[in-house]
Amino acid sequence: MIRSLLFVPGNNPGMIQSADVFGADGVIFDLEDSVHIYEKDNARMLVKSFLRNHPIHPAKIVIRVNSVDSPFFSADLEAVVGDEIDYVLLPKARISDIKMLTEKLETIEKEKKLKKQIAIMPLIESAVSLVETEGIAEFPRVSALMFGAEDFTADMGITRTKQGKELAYPRAKIAVACHAYGVQAIDTPFTDVDDEDGLFRDASEAASLGFAGKAAIHPRQIEIINRVFSPSDDNIIWAKRIFEAKKEADQKGHGVFSLDGKMVDKPVISRAETIREKAIACKKWDDGFEK
């Protein structure tokens, strides 16, 4: 489970080598927008060198390569794809791009004799990408989708606000598509790094729609994001009580039972199971506190 993904510019050696210490579930080494065009080769070489030589890596590594239509796409892939990375984050993704990236990855994996298959995380950040979301999500290599609100609102010619009403539709569409195809939905970064309350509200909104995690552009955002996308202590306690009550009902041979005066049936148990799964992934199930 990925709750938080920290963006780190690929040309910042200090940030790259300490990216693993901030508690993010994964790190995105960015070769695209945060790297100036003059620095593209520098960033590519630095990230490659870090992946091959540095003794300590983040838990999950995502590389945001430059888009398929850029002159840097192939060179980025050839430099950074290896057993060290988990995902390629593809900007401005369309169905045709995912096809091309899949083929490229297959070739590189074969040439480099990789031990694993690299997953694809398409970035939905234009109107046309959003329209193609379902088609993108169903690709076998796609195991997560990320929403990019800055580019999306720019593409739509609308203003991105802190309240985020304009993001309700794309978020809901992405969340539903992800759920339908069993892939994770990762929300867009919140860009005001000093506004902790705003980040909490924005992340909570995405979580309420079904997003599993959110990207961060500053390490101080991670704690809040992890908190929002982890089951709360109250939810864990509730789920545990559901399982205890179910055990008792099973012993008595009751299919449906009640807890605190409310009926507990299959969907409720299913919700408790989801909480348990997430809590286990966040190492919160045993005692209710994150380790």
């Binding site: 940030m15 300490s18 210490v21 901030f22 500053h218 390490p219 101080r220 704690e223």
Partner: peptide, 9 residues
């Protein structure tokens, strides 16, 4: 500095 802030937390 993110490292300093993490140490502080």
């Amino acid at each position: 500095d993110p490292i300093g802030l993490k140490i502080a937390r």
